Simulated assay, not measured.
Amino acid sequence: MISVFIVFAVFILFNINKMTNSLCIQREIPEERQPKVFRTINVLVTILLVSSFIEISLT
């Protein structure tokens, strides 16, 4: 179960990063702000994935 969830999490993070890149291009976010945007979104999605894993594991 853990390996399936890890593969799922990597797939989700990859797609979220692709969408974030599209957002940065579409909104013309400056190059110096883009790392902060990516970091913030990645941290929030990681927290969401970890909390989902914990919820699934405990039920």
Rank of each mutant, 00 (worst) to 15 (best):
M1H: 08
M1S: 09
I2G: 06
S3T: 07
S3E: 12
S3H: 09
V4E: 13
V4G: 04
V4Q: 10
V4H: 10
F5D: 02
I6W: 05
I6H: 02
V7G: 02
V7Q: 05
V7K: 03
V7F: 05
F8D: 02
F8S: 01
A9L: 02
A9R: 00
A9F: 08
A9Y: 00
V10G: 00
F11V: 00
I12C: 04
I12M: 04
I12H: 01
I12L: 01
I12Y: 04
I12W: 05
L13P: 01
L13I: 07
F14S: 10
N15D: 02
N15T: 01
N15Q: 05
N15H: 04
N15P: 02
I16S: 02
N17H: 09
K18A: 07
K18E: 06
K18I: 07
M19P: 00
M19Q: 03
M19C: 04
M19I: 07
T20I: 07
T20V: 12
N21Y: 14
N21L: 13
N21G: 09
N21D: 14
L23Q: 04
L23N: 01
C24Y: 05
C24M: 12
C24V: 11
I25Q: 10
Q26I: 01
Q26K: 10
Q26P: 03
R27A: 12
R27D: 06
R27G: 07
E28N: 12
E28S: 08
E28R: 07
E28W: 01
I29G: 00
P30N: 01
E31T: 04
E31Q: 01
E31D: 09
E31I: 03
E31N: 03
E31M: 03
E32R: 06
E32M: 08
R33P: 03
R33V: 05
R33W: 08
Q34A: 06
Q34I: 11
Q34W: 03
P35Y: 09
K36H: 08
K36F: 11
K36V: 08
V37K: 00
V37N: 00
V37Q: 01
F38T: 04
F38R: 08
F38G: 06
R39T: 11
R39C: 10
T40G: 05
T40P: 03
T40M: 12
I41M: 11
I41V: 14
I41G: 00
I41P: 06
I41C: 06
N42D: 10
V43Q: 10
V43K: 05
L44A: 11
L44N: 10
L44F: 09
V45I: 14
V45K: 03
T46P: 08
I47G: 13
L48V: 13
L48T: 13
L48R: 08
L48Q: 09
L49G: 09
L49H: 11
V50A: 11
V50W: 13
V50T: 11
S51H: 11
S51P: 06
S52L: 15
S52F: 15
S52R: 08
F53G: 14
F53P: 06
F53H: 10
F53M: 11
I54N: 12
I54W: 14
I54Q: 13
E55R: 13
I56M: 15
S57N: 14
L58K: 15
L58F: 15
T59N: 13
T59W: 06
